[in-house]
Amino acid sequence: MPLATTRRTGLVDQVIEQMRTAIATAEWKVGERIPTEPELVSALGVGRNTVREAVRALAHAGLLEVRQGDGTFVRATSEFSGALRRLVGSELREVLQVRRTLEVEGARLAATNRTDDELRDLTTLLTDRERLMQARDYEVGVDKDAEFHLAVVRCSHNTLLAELYQGLTEVVRASVAATVRETPHKANIDHRGLLEAITHRDPDRAAAEAAGFLDELLAELDRSEDL
């Protein structure tokens, strides 16, 4: 990622902005390690202290995670997303509960408000997701699953709901990955019922389908904790 050489005024703020842009545009992807400090110093034409201050600020905002001895990694794509990740925490149960709250209403509204073009996009996403999960390509399949759920919420045409859910993209993906890791037989959980409900503009069924698989995951989590 070629970074523009900074001007000599407001160096820390300029470096923060360039690094934030690299994250937001997926030049640096979530989960990946960013360039080393010497590499950033060379690319930006600034001192080590400036780079360290910028990294410290972005880590405080939740976008970066500094792992001693291992490097600095992208944790979230925006301050909003980083804040939500801290709020929700890493507990799978809490993430699933928050997902349920947003996805049920998103599905209900999607069944009423979706367009034909959006329906075609949903169908393609779900087909790709199923193919990847069946092939046990879980890493890419998890990404496609998260894209599908985000697309459903966007079909609600409720801007605020979609923005809230967008901010949860990383934790949604993490929850899907955790589910696949802890209960691999759930990797290809069936979402065709949800797609059919949205296709037939049935908001009650769409809400029930969205709640159903998340309730099932929560119940399985309860059972595993009781063992």
Score class of each variant (00 low, 15 high):
100 R>A: 07
44 L>N: 06
154 R>V: 05
170 E>D: 11
222 D>T: 11
167 G>W: 00
223 R>M: 09
223 R>N: 12
219 A>Q: 14
186 K>C: 14
138 Y>W: 15
175 S>W: 01
38 P>E: 10
176 V>P: 03
141 G>S: 05
149 H>G: 00
19 M>W: 04
124 T>G: 04
8 R>Y: 12
140 V>Y: 08
95 V>R: 13
199 T>K: 10
163 E>Q: 15
124 T>L: 11
88 V>I: 14
123 T>W: 01
211 A>L: 06
77 T>K: 03
56 R>T: 09
26 A>L: 11
119 L>K: 03
71 G>Q: 04
81 S>W: 01
190 D>L: 03
110 A>V: 03
198 I>W: 01
205 R>Y: 06
121 D>W: 00
204 D>V: 08
210 A>Q: 03
129 R>W: 02
150 L>T: 00
196 E>T: 15
153 V>M: 08
127 T>Y: 07
105 E>C: 06
16 I>W: 00
112 T>D: 05
116 D>W: 11
184 P>F: 08
212 G>M: 06
131 R>S: 08
167 G>R: 00
220 E>H: 11
138 Y>V: 08
22 A>G: 13
62 G>V: 00
136 R>I: 04
96 L>R: 01
158 N>K: 08
226 D>R: 15
208 A>E: 05
56 R>E: 13
74 V>I: 09
120 R>D: 09
37 E>A: 11
86 R>M: 13
42 S>F: 06
93 R>D: 13
44 L>W: 02
23 I>K: 00
23 I>V: 13
142 V>R: 00
73 F>H: 04
95 V>Q: 09
24 A>H: 13
143 D>R: 06
218 L>V: 10
167 G>D: 02
59 A>P: 04
166 Q>F: 02
193 G>F: 07
200 H>T: 15
204 D>E: 15
67 R>M: 12
10 G>E: 11
51 V>M: 01
168 L>N: 00
46 V>L: 02
138 Y>Q: 10
42 S>P: 06
137 D>P: 05
100 R>N: 10
215 D>G: 08
32 E>K: 09
120 R>H: 09
13 D>E: 14
205 R>M: 09
94 E>M: 10
161 L>C: 07
195 L>W: 03
204 D>C: 07
195 L>Q: 05
66 V>F: 04
207 A>P: 01
38 P>N: 10
70 D>P: 02
48 R>D: 11
180 V>L: 11
181 R>T: 14
11 L>K: 15
144 K>W: 04
60 H>A: 15
119 L>M: 11
42 S>I: 06
36 T>K: 12
141 G>D: 02
65 E>D: 13
207 A>V: 01
40 L>H: 01
126 L>S: 02
210 A>V: 01
26 A>K: 10
196 E>M: 12
41 V>Y: 03
129 R>T: 02
143 D>G: 07
223 R>T: 13
74 V>R: 01
113 N>W: 06
72 T>R: 03
84 L>W: 10
82 G>T: 03
183 T>H: 10
